[in-house]
Measured scan of single mutants.
Amino acid sequence: TTYKLILNGKTLKGETTTEAVDAETAERVFKEYAKKNGVDGEWTYDDATKTFTSTE
């Protein structure tokens, strides 16, 4: 399943996707990605669109 991440950081904005077996796995991948890029925001998830959003 393809999951999408929308980053709305103070210094980094953008989108990326990952293939994962479930939302929990995708969330771990995306949170590590955000951390590596210095984004520490509030997380939301929309199951209908398989989209995570992190907003600082």
Rank of each mutant, 00 (worst) to 15 (best):
G41A: 05
E32D: 10
D40L: 12
T55A: 06
T53A: 05
A23D: 05
R28M: 10
E24T: 10
F30I: 00
K36R: 13
T44Y: 09
A34E: 04
K36E: 11
Y3A: 01
N8W: 13
G9D: 03
V21E: 12
E42M: 13
K35Y: 10
D46C: 09
E56S: 06
K13C: 14
T11N: 14
K31Y: 06
K13T: 11
Y45P: 00
G38H: 07
E19K: 13
F52T: 00
L12N: 08
E19S: 10
A20L: 02
T16I: 15
D47E: 14
L7Q: 01
T18W: 09
W43P: 01
T49R: 06
K10S: 10
T2L: 14
D46N: 10
T17A: 06
T17W: 14
E32L: 10
I6V: 11
K35D: 06
K13D: 05
K50N: 07
K31H: 08
T2W: 13
E27K: 11
G9H: 14
Y3K: 01
A23V: 13
D47Y: 08
E56G: 05
V21I: 13
D40F: 15
I6P: 00
K36P: 01
E27D: 05
D47R: 09
K4E: 02
F30Y: 01
A20K: 02
S54L: 15
A48L: 11
E42H: 12
K13L: 08
D47S: 12
Y33D: 01
G9W: 15
R28K: 12
L12M: 14
R28F: 08
G14R: 14
A20C: 09
N8A: 09
F52L: 00
A23M: 13
T55W: 09
W43I: 05
A26Y: 01
T18D: 02
T53P: 00
D47M: 09
T16K: 09
T44K: 09
K10G: 07
V39W: 14
E15A: 08
T55M: 07
K4A: 04
W43C: 02
R28T: 07
T2C: 14
L5S: 01
Y45V: 00
Y33W: 13
K4Q: 05
V21C: 13
A34G: 02
T51Y: 01
K31V: 06
V21L: 13
D22H: 04
